[in-house]
Design a protein around this nucleic acid. Structure first.
Lengths: 187, 187
DNA sequence: TGTATTTTTTAACATTTGTAAAAAAATATC
DNA sequence: GATATTTTTTTACAAATGTTAAAAAATACA
């Protein structure tokens, strides 16, 4: 998905406003397994994923817990940096090669202070993000790992071609052995 | 906490802008155990809690799972109604008697479309809500029920005086028996 | 104060999930 | 294509949590 369509998916904007946003974005490519949001660093950018798959994760003891996978069309917000200008907890890296557009947080905030439509775009961006995270929370509270596994595959049928099961297990919040058991029961 | 302070806690606003928000709010009182956000209804208001304790929950089979407790100074957003004008999943009711200020969503959105500071206030409101829900998600992914129980008590020491343990167990995502075991180990 | 009701804890047992290690399968590399 | 490496599944066992039911404690209320 192209940047312009990604912007319009959030909130309708006139051409002149879209161009203000595009003007503060720059395109970047990452090879696979590149960390582009590091832990405990204050990030200067938010990212629009045009192509590829990324994972957002967090180290837990000697393991990694995956918070989310990102697919083309998603916007990746290093939340604590974006909202409070502070270091982020989460790490983001590319699973496959990726094409992203990075948007300067500082320049974006200048637009928020000067443009009413863009301030409302930013409001919608945050609101949609809230709904997404709430859905993620609801899933983990109300659905079993088996259901969530099936939901994930329905939503992203190509997932298994790119992501190893160990990753998916941490995303589902179970051990890899349990995920294996789930898979063997489904077949 | 008073409405004005609650508004300013989100994002700094000039007196004239604050007054626009206060003008679309009305004060309401609920006795304890009153449902004021019902499931599968499209809500017209968001709520600022001045006094009392509420719970946000969701029915699961024959049980209830509590998503969150609300304390004075919190803003309660029926998310799906607020963002998409659709029915909400969650139910909100008062645990104690409550004094709330309800703000019309439609009138608020009119202000978003006309006032730049208020649009940015609304942006911050959503951003802060996102951070809150993310923290809740992180807690449930990374901390044990025992740790979360202790965290909750540290944050809200008076909780046990108002909320029965069965409620707290569903909030922590464990059975009441497990919570009893946790409590007996702490002592 | 005494009784009824609600809430919390305890007990016994079944089920689920995790851990560690080995086997099997799939993938990568030369 | 053969070998090495990585990933996935399987097994056996231990630990944690859930369920049901009963006992104990706390609270409400007449």
């Amino acid at each position: 998905m192209e940047l312009k369509d990604g912007i319009l998916k959030i909130y309708p904007l006139a051409e002149t406003e879209i161009n203000k946003l595009i003007a503060i974005a720059e395109i970047v490519e990452f090879p696979k397994q590149t960390t582009f949001i590091a832990q405990n660093t204050t990030n200067k950018y938010i990212y629009f994923l045009e192509k590829g798959i990324c994972r957002i994760y967090y180290p837990k003891q000697d393991k990694e817990v995956i918070l989310d996978f990102c697919f083309p069309g998603n916007i990746i917000l290093p939340l604590n940096s974006y909202v409070y200008g502070k270091p982020t907890y989460e790490i983001v890296d590319s699973i496959t090669g990726c094409i992203v557009h990075r948007i300067s947080i500082i320049k974006l905030q200048e637009l928020y202070e000067t443009s009413l439509p863009i301030a409302n775009w930013g409001r919608k961006l945050a609101e949609i993000e809230t709904i997404k995270i709430e859905e993620r929370l609801m899933q983990s509270l109300f659905k079993s790992a088996a259901e969530r596994y099936q939901d994930l595959l329905t939503k992203e049928p190509t997932l298994l071609q790119h992501i190893k099961l160990g990753y998916i297990a941490t995303y589902l919040g179970v051990s890899q052995v349990t995920l294996s058991r789930i898979r063997s029961e489904i077949k």
